[in-house]
Every structure is written in structure tokens, then in C-alpha cells.
Computed example of a mutant assay.
Amino acid sequence: MKQRYFLPEASILNLNPRLNSGLKSWDCAILASRQGGKSQFLTACLLILAVAFSPLVASAADITQQLHRPLDRSTLRDSRDQADSLLNIGEQQYQLGYADKTLDSCLQALEIYHSLGDYKAQGMTYDLLAKAYIQLDRLQEGEDALRRRLAIARDTKDFQSQIFALNNISTVLLQKGEFIPAGKTVQEALEIAQNVQNIAGEGLSLSNWGLVNARVGNYSKAIKLYETALSFRRQSGDVIGETNTLNNLGDAYLAMGNYDDTIGTYGAALRIAKTTRDRTNYVRAIDGLVTAHSSVGRNERAFDLLEQRLAMARDSQNLREEFGVFMTYAKIYEKLNNYLTARNFYERALVLARTLEDSKQEVFLVDKLTKLPKR
């Protein structure tokens, strides 16, 4: 059973094989922008179905308020079917971007699984709860859900789930800026993976340990860890994991000013992501390459890549990504002292900032345009 994790690796691990069998559209990470074009119609249809078949909102206020009432034998099958349905609806709601509705569905499912004494199903539900909480930027609640998932994995001696739960907890701690606990947690995951000879877990843990080192500025150690992680990820056939690690490695080279290795590493990530249609890593690799090429004066190549990036943003109707492309264009032209073109892109970015109701960027851009030379 393949398991996945989140944050710069992309997003939280999907530890639910039953959901994956019917919903293969992951691999877009916590994240990933999925709306756009014809997919809006499909999205609307899926949402209508999810809402139409969704039961009443859970009465539980949070994941600590689960009921403990036993169920009659005659109701066990119906109860399990209901819980499974709720969990599937929750996954659909999450993929459609309705994390708040995912919480309601998961909390109801959790009540039933608790009554049934189904620890495996409870673990999968906590995984989805964590994903939803983190998407809503409720990191503490997401961490709490992951720790409950870890406790179940330890009680059932499920070492693989322990490895991935620890990695997920580590990435949440990293998001919270708690670098030392994040490092200790991922090292615990690595130790378990090594003890049970879980190659995929070793690759993931080494990559995340590299990420912790990169966040504290220890890029040399991060690079060594990433390089070792790549070996394990290739052995396990984890192509998406390999691409993630390549992008992490590119980030580290870029931070050190090693542009040749930066371009080569991001280029490798780009090729793999294109082949596997991994949009998240493809976009990440393009952004890294744009920065690297523009840093060494290869502006034509940077502009070619930006055109691809802009086309992707427009195809998916992702205004936030389009805003980012305009900002990158503007910064490069400003660096080239082409203030007229830079102003044009800053103005286009300002329009999008207002559309997105991003007051912080709006204030920044108004000030930027005021100070930018007019010639």
C-alpha cells in the first residue's frame, strides 16, 4: 500500500487505499490547484452529488468529542456502510476544496468507527481529518489528528503507518517553525524505517530530514541527505517522491548559489514531472528554473519558461498562480531596468490582487508603482 505525505513533498499522506481506488485524482498534493476550464463542470457535478448524499452535520464539536455508544448486531453492516460512505464523501469534499465540509463528514464517520471498534478505519479517518485541518491552516488541530493516528499505529504495531505519521507530524512542526522537534520526529521515523527495512520510508524520512536542515540553513548537510534519499526513492519506485526530492535538492543548490547544479537538478525534476503529469512538481521545477536562469542572465530561457507557467495558470483558471507569474515578470524586467514593461506587469498584478481581495499585496503594489521610475 503506497502512502504519501504532505508539505513541500506536497501534501499529507493518503493512507486510505479504499478511497484511492475510487479517487485516483490525488497526486496533486495539499495541495494542488485543480480547478479550471471543463473541470469546473465536473467539479460542480461532484459537489452536488456530495451535498445531496451527505447526512446531517455532525454534532461533535471536535475530534475529542466522539460518542461511545455500542451498536446492535443488526445495525453493524448498515453502520459500516454509512461510515464508509461518509469517509468517501469527505474525500470528495476535500478534493473539491471544501475542507470544512470534510471535517463534518469525518467526525460523523469517526463516531461510527469508534462504536464499531475499527482501529484501522479510525486511523484512515484521522489522516483525512489532518489533511482538512491543515488545508484550513488549523495546524494545531491537524497535528493533534496526526498524533491520534500515530497512537493507533503504535497500538496495532503498524510500523509503516508509524513511519508516515511521524513524517507528517514533522512537516507540520516545520510549518510551525519548531525545527528541533521536527528534526527529532523525522529521525524517529527514519530509525523505525531502517529497523523494519522499509525502503520507501527511509527515502521519505531522509528527504524530510534534509528539508529540516535546509530550513535552518544547513544546506551542505541537506544536500547529502537529499542525495542519499534519491537512492532509496529510486529503489522503491517512488517516482513522485523522487521528483519531490529533486526539487528539494534544486532549492538547496539555489540557496548556495550553485546555479549549474540547480539548473540540472530542476531540469531532471521537470522531465519526470512532465512524463508523470505531476502538475505540482512540474510547476515547482519551472519556478526554480526561472529563478536560476534569470540569476545568471539567461533571461530568454526564463521568459520561455514563464510563458509556459502563465499558460498553465490560465488553463486551470488559477488567479493566484497568474498573479505570481506577473510578479516574476515584473521583477525580472525591473532588474533589467526596463521600467516601462515592469510597470505594465506590476499593474496587471495589482488588478489580480484586488480581484483576489489580497489587501497586503495591493498595498505593496500601490507603493511599488509609486516608487518605480517612469522611464
Rank of each mutant, 00 (worst) to 15 (best):
R4I: 11
Y5L: 15
I12H: 11
P17L: 09
L19W: 13
L31K: 10
A32K: 13
R34L: 12
K38V: 02
Q40M: 11
L49Q: 14
A60C: 01
A61F: 08
I63T: 11
D72Q: 14
L76P: 04
N88C: 12
K101G: 05
L103H: 00
D104E: 14
H114L: 13
R148D: 04
A153N: 13
S161Y: 04
Q162Y: 03
F164C: 04
F164W: 06
T171Y: 12
Q175K: 07
G177W: 00
N198G: 04
N198W: 10
N208C: 13
G210W: 12
N213L: 04
A222S: 11
K224G: 09
L225K: 00
A229W: 01
F232N: 02
F232Q: 03
D238K: 00
D251P: 02
D251A: 07
L254G: 00
N258P: 01
Y259V: 00
D260P: 09
I263T: 05
Y266W: 05
Y266G: 02
G267W: 08
T275C: 00
T276W: 02
N281E: 14
R284F: 03
T291D: 00
S294A: 02
D304G: 07
L305E: 08
L310Y: 09
M312N: 07
A313K: 01
D315Q: 12
L319P: 04
T328S: 03
N338M: 13
T341R: 13
R343M: 13
A353E: 06
L356R: 01
S359C: 01
K360L: 10
F364P: 03
F364Y: 06
L369G: 12
L372P: 12
L372S: 05
R375F: 14
